[in-house]
Design a protein around this nucleic acid. Structure first.
Length: 147
DNA sequence: CGTTTGACTACGC
DNA sequence: CGCGTAGCCAAAC
């Protein structure tokens, strides 16, 4: 695994807190969650960008089974399940259960289900940053052209 | 001790 | 759309 965050306790707690904000039917990416958390002084922005997505995965991996954190709503930046083996099955079924549609390729369409982050006031009150949207500029699914 | 292996992502073919 | 690569660390084996 990659280096652990400077302050794992705080980092993990923040990841969980953010993940709890993802509404049912929506999904976020590891990198997106990482982007919401301001890098600590001891790590360069460059290093943070490279490693933090893994730290997010580690944080979710450390959740107790009894947790109420909807970890299944966190996918790779491509909308794919990154969890190995049987756990992938569980994640897919949990997502389907809450109404998240899967493509033929077995991924989730981020243009459709991608989360754009919590409301501004929530972010502000927690000292977090707005992540870039997972949706691509012209990637709308069924948005009719007007001309 | 040397090797393997990641809950990642952006980019190139 | 699938597959490979760089990045380059820390545990688990």
């Amino acid at each position: 695994m990659r280096r652990t965050p400077p302050d794992p306790e705080v980092f993990n707690a923040t990841v969980w807190h953010i993940t709890r904000q993802i509404p049912p039917g929506s999904v976020a990416s590891y990198g997106q969650i990482a982007a919401m958390i301001p890098p600590q002084e001891s790590v360069s922005p460059d290093e943070y960008r490279r490693l933090a997505p893994f730290w997010v995965g580690q944080a979710l991996n450390q959740l107790p089974e009894t947790s109420d954190v909807p970890w299944q709503r966190v996918l790779s930046a491509q909308g794919a399940i990154s969890l190995p083996g049987a756990a992938a099955e569980q994640q897919r079924s949990r997502l389907k259960q809450e109404g998240v549609p899967f493509t033929e390729a077995g991924t989730v369409d981020l243009n459709q289900c991608g989360w754009d982050g919590p409301p501004d006031d929530w972010l502000q009150s927690h000292g977090l940053r707005r992540p870039p949207s997972l949706k691509k500029p012209g990637g709308d699914v069924h948005q009719p052209r007007l001309f």
